[in-house]
């Protein structure tokens, strides 16, 4: 099942021009009446993928709930750049409690809504939780798994930029192998993050057999919006894992954020799929398969692979990981499962 029946793609950009679509099919972001849930004036770096992803996702969730949304936010870049006291970018009710408890805070909000609804004191309000990869896959993992397991009515969105960016680009369990971070420096015989460690949270979310799990990138606005919309149609625990390039941490040009996200998908480095109750329902197929080098080379965090003597051995291992993703998730256009 695909949520993207639209097939008109502008050559080169892969994005569909809204002018080709009927108004009701246009993206939420394209609408002048979009909510601007996270308003301009925040302090993210130029080209921040996380800021972009959050805007897309939360605006889509606001659209889907007709503005009846509360957000809980983990400590991290998104929280820090959006709410420097006494200013806030959030146009929606928003709470930041701690780094590692966001899923539980959201569960609490959802529980409160349930009681208030039952008592007839409040109309239906939905809850979204959001955090970075560190706040989700590492320190917040216990609370996240608990929320999943209880099937609380929360959509959790992870903005994965592959590291603890807010504290200066340290390694998280979502940092890809070979990537340089400030705690996996490009030094020694095996520079960068080691192979054979780390975890892929979307698969762990799937293992909880919750109603909805999806991955997305900021390169595919329409796909991302469709997934958020779908998630908001469902009750219970839902998880969307969005790849959000970070110019600062990745060492990429601010203007390359969307391109990097697209390359992650087109190389098979980042599989984009959608699943219900633990079963993958659809994948976003690779359109023009590209070698991982195309994705790695523009990023300074992989610069040590492209020195005087390029580390073709390491690049081959990364290619093998991408190839495995392509096989495992059927990313070359064949129907999954």
């Amino acid at each position: 099942m695909s949520f993207q029946p639209i097939k008109f793609y502008q050559t080169g950009t892969f994005t569909v021009g809204n002018r080709l679509l009927a108004p009701e099919e246009r993206s939420v972001q394209a609408s002048a009446k979009r909510f601007n849930s996270i308003n301009s004036g925040h302090r993210a770096c130029q080209g921040c993928g996380e800021a972009l992803g959050a805007r897309y996702a939360i605006d889509a969730a606001m659209e889907a709930t007709q503005g009846r949304l509360i957000a809980a936010n983990a400590t991290g870049c998104l929280e820090v750049f959006s709410t420097p006291y006494p200013e806030t970018s959030w146009q929606i009710p928003w709470i930041h409690s701690l780094f590692g408890n966001t899923a539980a805070v959201a569960s609490g909000i959802a529980a409160a809504q349930k009681v208030k609804m039952k008592k007839g004191e409040r109309r239906n309000i939905r809850v979204v939780a959001q955090g970075g990869d560190g706040g989700t896959t590492d320190i917040g993992f216990g609370c996240l798994s608990g929320m999943f397991e209880r099937n609380d009515d929360v959509l959790y969105i992870c903005y994965d930029n592959g590291g603890y960016m807010n504290t200066g680009v340290q390694r998280s369990s979502a940092t890809p192998p070979a990537a340089r971070t400030s705690t996996t420096p490009a030094a020694g015989a095996e520079p960068g993050n080691v192979f054979g460690q780390g975890k892929y949270l979307p698969a762990i979310a799937l293992a909880h057999e919750i109603p909805y799990v999806a991955t997305a990138t900021v390169a595919d606005l329409r796909d991302l919006e469709a997934k958020v919309r779908r998630a908001m149609e469902i009750r219970g625990a839902r998880y969307i894992h969005i790849l959000v390039p970070c110019p600062l941490g990745w060492g990429t040009a601010a203007s390359d954020t969307v391109r990097m996200a697209r390359l992650a998908k087109e190389t098979g480095v980042f599989p984009v799929f959608e699943a219900e109750y633990g079963e993958i329902k659809s994948v976003l197929a690779i359109r023009h398969r590209l070698p991982v080098e195309d994705y790695l080379k523009p990023q300074k965090r992989y610069a040590h692979l492209f020195g005087k003597t390029p580390r073709i051995d390491v690049i081959a291992r990364l290619q093998a990981l991408a190839d495995r993703n392509i096989r495992k998730y059927g990313l070359l256009g064949k129907e999954a499962n």
Binding site: A104, V105, A111, G146
Partner: peptide, 23 residues
Amino acid sequence: EYLNVESEFAAMSVAIGASAAGA
């Protein structure tokens, strides 16, 4: 609403969310 949570850290965090939502 009675929640069986996975830790005390979650217990207090759920209480934080619920209280902030007015419960």
